[in-house]
Simulated scan of single mutants.
Amino acid sequence: MPIVHFHLIEGGATPEQERRLLLDASRLYAEVLECPIDRVRAFIQPYAPGRAAVAGEMVSEGAAPAPYFEFLVLEGRPLEQRQRLLTGFTDLLVEILDVERSRIRGHCKRVQPEEWSIGGRPAAELRRQDIAAFSRRMQLDEA
């Protein structure tokens, strides 16, 4: 289920920077969520400068790009993990693309396991054991 989308301006990064962003974001996601990396998906959605405005100014007319990212997690993930991802994805954009931190925005979307599918089957069904083990671990951590 772990999926991250980076919304970037076309031409604002080299192919190598994009590659590094996608791979480093994938590793971060797997590490923070303690999940197999084969479950992680990372995408870059490019926008032409004439199709993006920042602070009321068109990027094509001189506005500095301001990356946005969004990522998905199954409901029940602790706030600490979600915040680590918000910070971590921001750190990657700052480090890899040399973007001013204050210009970056990010959003975590929580999804109910019953509303997510893997191969057409509900995640709640396929990941029942993972979800139960995760819940037990969270209860032990809280105790």
Rank of each mutant, 00 (worst) to 15 (best):
residue 2 P to S: 15
residue 2 P to R: 02
residue 2 P to F: 01
residue 2 P to D: 05
residue 3 I to W: 12
residue 3 I to R: 14
residue 5 H to T: 15
residue 7 H to N: 08
residue 8 L to N: 00
residue 10 E to F: 02
residue 10 E to R: 07
residue 11 G to L: 02
residue 12 G to A: 10
residue 13 A to L: 03
residue 13 A to V: 01
residue 14 T to L: 01
residue 14 T to N: 01
residue 14 T to A: 06
residue 15 P to E: 02
residue 17 Q to L: 03
residue 18 E to N: 07
residue 18 E to F: 01
residue 19 R to G: 05
residue 19 R to V: 02
residue 21 L to H: 07
residue 21 L to P: 01
residue 22 L to S: 02
residue 25 A to N: 05
residue 26 S to A: 14
residue 27 R to T: 15
residue 29 Y to T: 14
residue 29 Y to V: 02
residue 33 L to M: 13
residue 35 C to D: 03
residue 36 P to K: 11
residue 37 I to D: 11
residue 38 D to M: 03
residue 39 R to D: 10
residue 39 R to P: 03
residue 40 V to P: 08
residue 42 A to W: 00
residue 43 F to N: 10
residue 45 Q to F: 12
residue 46 P to W: 09
residue 47 Y to M: 06
residue 48 A to D: 12
residue 48 A to Q: 14
residue 48 A to H: 13
residue 49 P to N: 10
residue 50 G to H: 15
residue 50 G to A: 09
residue 50 G to Y: 07
residue 51 R to K: 15
residue 52 A to K: 04
residue 52 A to E: 04
residue 53 A to V: 10
residue 55 A to C: 14
residue 57 E to W: 11
residue 59 V to G: 06
residue 59 V to S: 02
residue 59 V to A: 05
residue 63 A to E: 06
residue 63 A to I: 11
residue 63 A to L: 04
residue 65 P to H: 08
residue 66 A to N: 02
residue 67 P to W: 01
residue 69 F to Y: 14
residue 70 E to G: 11
residue 70 E to T: 12
residue 72 L to D: 15
residue 72 L to P: 02
residue 72 L to R: 13
residue 73 V to Q: 00
residue 74 L to S: 01
residue 77 R to A: 09
residue 80 E to F: 07
residue 81 Q to Y: 07
residue 82 R to L: 07
residue 82 R to G: 06
residue 82 R to I: 09
residue 83 Q to T: 11
residue 83 Q to L: 11
residue 84 R to L: 10
residue 85 L to R: 00
residue 87 T to F: 12
residue 87 T to I: 11
residue 87 T to C: 08
residue 88 G to K: 03
residue 88 G to Q: 06
residue 89 F to C: 00
residue 90 T to Q: 03
residue 92 L to I: 08
residue 93 L to N: 03
residue 93 L to S: 05
residue 94 V to K: 03
residue 94 V to I: 13
residue 94 V to L: 11
residue 96 I to W: 06
residue 97 L to K: 01
residue 98 D to T: 12
residue 98 D to Y: 07
residue 99 V to R: 00
residue 99 V to G: 00
residue 100 E to D: 11
residue 100 E to H: 09
residue 101 R to H: 05
residue 102 S to H: 12
residue 102 S to R: 14
residue 103 R to H: 14
residue 106 G to H: 09
residue 106 G to E: 03
residue 108 C to F: 07
residue 109 K to L: 13
residue 110 R to H: 14
residue 111 V to L: 06
residue 111 V to Q: 06
residue 112 Q to V: 14
residue 113 P to T: 15
residue 114 E to T: 12
residue 114 E to M: 03
residue 114 E to Q: 13
residue 120 G to P: 04
residue 120 G to L: 05
residue 120 G to I: 12
residue 121 R to E: 13
residue 122 P to G: 06
residue 122 P to L: 06
residue 130 D to P: 05
residue 131 I to Q: 03
residue 131 I to S: 00
residue 133 A to D: 10
residue 135 S to T: 13
residue 136 R to G: 11
residue 138 M to L: 08
residue 138 M to W: 14
residue 139 Q to G: 04
residue 140 L to T: 13
residue 141 D to F: 07
residue 141 D to I: 14
residue 142 E to M: 13
residue 142 E to L: 07
residue 143 A to E: 15
